[in-house]
Write a protein that binds this DNA or RNA. Structure first.
Lengths: 314, 314
DNA sequence: TTAATAGTGTCTCTTAGACAGTATTGC
DNA sequence: GCAATACTGTCTAAGAGACACTATTAA
């Protein structure tokens, strides 16, 4: 890790620091909680030999093997340790849980309400991670450490009600999101279908031309801590990120991919259907055609594409 | 503040929590550091009665009255206290320093390298705040608490060198930014011209199609802690925010403003000149004309505009 | 009148959206 | 041939960029 680069301290500073005891102050713990997204195929039984398997947006969750919320599902994550940055914490936990660190990872939000964690004063730095099926496949989900069982859930976030109140100069807007997580049964015969559910309220307050946004849990079933709101916030942010730069979609793709794969990933995140020729025109600058063909069923094979690095690294 | 909404704990949880002592673990302190931006007029002496005063982008800094870095300039900020969120910390400190809380405020980044603060393990949550001249004017800069003197600095961030190395699958890119802060002499006769200066290196690493960005201080003159890199990161982010949504520019404006004012704010942040008719077309949906006229000198008076709230609150 | 800013009209070029049409595969 | 996906061409509408032009003010 790079040094922060603060310069050497002057003698007055040194003197002061000798008498400075940071442990006098009350301090929180910091945890990194990671919303790991990926795109997976749905194993549908109605096998039309022609039709491509349906895709789903998936989120990685970990079953808690410890108190509190023992048995419920939580985001992968853990506490920041001394001598690491919170980004390193997130990467470490991500690798422990997924077996790979080939993932997009970026800061998302901070949750620091007192009372959000029954164990005490714990601040959660949330991250968004995106990884592709291939890197996951060889890493496999190794239930490392105290993590217990880990598994992918099909995630849907639906905006329900929107309540808006205007009071003179102040506008308040409550958006309710229904978060549903359904366990993706990954080829295992255990036919148990785990469903987690939550309602999260996004509270937007406009005052003096400025907005304050908070997330509040209305209902949460089977999801540990306040992770339902962290997930909802992460999903909303992922949508906005995709909106402002389509390149995040490529992080869901392995080295080689078809343009249909890429388009489906975008559609899953944005929740909107796109018109193929327009989509292809849009991503054209970011991809390079290969000679490889991908045969997928009783229809014309697709060309495999790779990233056009020139356009990514700029 | 809204509750985090975690549900009531089961009995197993209660039992566990009774024996749980969070103080066993080593914990950091968390501070909120706020990059407060605004747009101000430059008091130029060459008084052409016609010409509008030049505008500058300004950043609020606080002279440290305490060790460490006593006498140097730092971002306004302070430690998170129990029973407040980090966002509340930021708002509290902002109000202490500027006298107003009518400001845009949003999370920017986290800096958590061990060694970034000589006092010990201190994590900095950085925020971006934007406020307008009018709210500042009546709030005035009240040097509250342990803050010492506070003042506005004209800020310029210039990208210098860009060093790029490709090594097989890995691409490394170092961007050097020159940060210059010049004290805006706010009508006072004290003609001392304080100049702070730093070089911050943005280190971008592309590996496995994913990027890791870190900021490192190469040189820092008169700026406390690692705040030079926090400022550089905040400025870069402000630019990107403006790029993806022009509405952030309105936070620099008071209730009423002219379109030229707004355009100048955008130009200052983006560093690019814009063509007037195109700019007006772009912001047209966000503004409403008023009857008020603004007389500014020996030229045609400008119409005052207000925000078209319909387009902001959506 | 002059030199400054305020504001409008319009031409062009680029981009986004929609749709029609062709190509290729396994059965 | 059929039904699925893969891929291309083109028309149209909307938006971005550039520039020329008019309007209004204080000295």
């Amino acid at each position: 890790m790079t040094m922060s680069g603060t310069k050497e301290y002057e003698s007055a500073d040194r003197e002061f620091l000798a008498g400075y005891d940071i442990s006098r102050y009350d301090r929180p713990s910091i945890a990194a909680d990671i919303a790991v997204f990926s795109v997976g195929r749905k194993l549908s039984e109605d096998a039309d030999y022609r039709r491509l398997p349906e895709k789903t947006l998936r989120l990685l969750m970990v079953r808690r093997a410890k108190q509190p919320f023992c048995g419920e599902w939580a985001l992968p994550g853990g506490f920041m340790q001394k001598n690491e940055t919170i980004q390193q914490t997130a990467r470490r936990e991500l690798k422990e849980e997924t077996g790979t660190d080939k993932a997009y990872l970026s800061l998302c939000d901070v949750f620091s309400d007192s009372g959000r964690d029954p164990r005490g004063w714990i601040v959660s730095q949330s991250f968004i991670a995106v990884l592709n099926e291939d890197d996951l496949a060889d890493g496999r989900l190794e239930a490392g450490g105290d993590a217990g069982e880990a598994g992918w859930f099909d995630i849907t976030v639906q905006k329900q009600a929107e309540h808006r109140r205007e009071q003179g100069n102040e506008i308040t807007c409550d958006n309710d999101y229904e978060l549903t997580l359904v366990r993706s049964v990954c080829g295992e015969e255990s036919e148990e279908r785990i469903t987690l559910f939550a309602v999260v309220r996004e509270h937007i307050e406009y005052r003096d031309h400025h907005e304050i946004i908070t997330y509040e849990i209305v209902r949460s079933q089977g999801i540990a801590f306040d992770h339902a709101r962290i997930v909802t916030g992460a999903f909303n942010r992922l949508q906005r990120m995709l909106d402002s730069d389509i390149r995040i979609a490529f992080d869901f793709m392995p080295e080689q991919f078809t343009l249909t794969d890429l388009q489906e990933a975008v559609e899953l995140i944005s929740g909107q259907e796109l018109i193929k020729p327009n989509f292809r025109r849009k991503v054209n600058e970011y991809v390079r055609e290969t000679d490889t063909q991908v045969l997928n069923g009783g229809h014309r094979p697709a060309k495999a594409y790779v990233r056009n690095l020139e356009r990514f690294y700029r």
